[in-house]
């Protein structure tokens, strides 16, 4: 099998060398309205935006021990919207001075034959889910509140069930590497959502 593609090489410059700063939390279904209400007040004045996405996670196994992972996402409620391919790097917890999780990220819009292309390259689907929720913005910060649905029959996004009785809440900023100051703004914003939601930097490795 071919060596994993480009991103194993260090990428520098342009929009490629971007980092995602992330804080995560959750809110129970019955408190969703209060959270949405508060977010509407706190965030930029914009039309409330909702989304319904289908995400598929693909793996490519090379010689290395760890396979290469790509995420493909498509909108289910917006016909004709491009697909979204995303690479996410190893998350770094950092120290106490940085208030958010940081990971490398590469985002790209693609045509709808993305899955075929990935399959041809040797990628295999690992898992998939449906995400439905709300999107808010405040400056460069993005806040998404969404429910995750498990897909019961492969590829059939109509046959789903909710994963839990909560909505996942994520606060993220995509910024050039080294812009740790943005995590201060994120922390301040997260403070304003307490005690409704506690946004924290959660190390996913802890949950494996």
């Amino acid at each position: 099998m071919e060596a994993p593609p480009v991103t194993m090489m260090p990428v520098t410059g342009g929009t490629i060398n971007m980092m995602e700063y992330l804080l995560q939390g959750s809110v129970l279904d019955h408190s969703l309205e209060s959270l949405i209400h508060r977010l509407r007040g706190l965030c930029d004045n914009m039309e409330p935006e909702t989304f319904l996405d289908h995400e598929m996670v693909f793996l490519l196994k090379g010689q290395q021990a760890s396979p290469f992972v790509l995420r493909a996402r498509r909108s289910m409620d917006r016909a004709g919207a491009p697909w979204h391919l995303r690479y996410l790097g190893q998350p770094e917890m950092g120290d106490k001075n940085r208030h958010a999780l940081v990971r490398n990220c590469v985002d790209i819009a693609t045509s709808e034959n993305l899955t075929d292309f990935l399959m041809e390259m040797g990628f295999r689907m690992d898992h998939e889910f449906v995400a439905r929720g709300h999107l808010f913005r405040k400056g460069i910060m993005k806040i998404v509140v969404y429910k995750i649905f498990r897909i019961l029959t492969p590829g059939n996004t109509d046959n789903t069930e909710a994963l839990s009785l909560s909505y996942l809440v994520e606060l993220s900023v995509v910024a050039p590497a080294g812009q740790d100051v943005v995590s201060d703004d994120m922390r301040n914003f997260a403070e304003q959502l307490k005690p409704l939601v506690h946004l924290e930097k959660i190390d996913p490795k802890r949950l494996m």
Partner: peptide, 24 residues
């Protein structure tokens, strides 16, 4: 208004598909 266990489950689900349909 929130449940830490749910947070963990949801984060694990988006991070590596824990608890999600796994077709492998």
């Amino acid at each position: 208004t929130f449940n830490p266990a749910d947070t963990n489950a949801l984060v694990a689900a988006v991070a590596f598909g824990k608890g999600l349909s796994n077709w492998r």
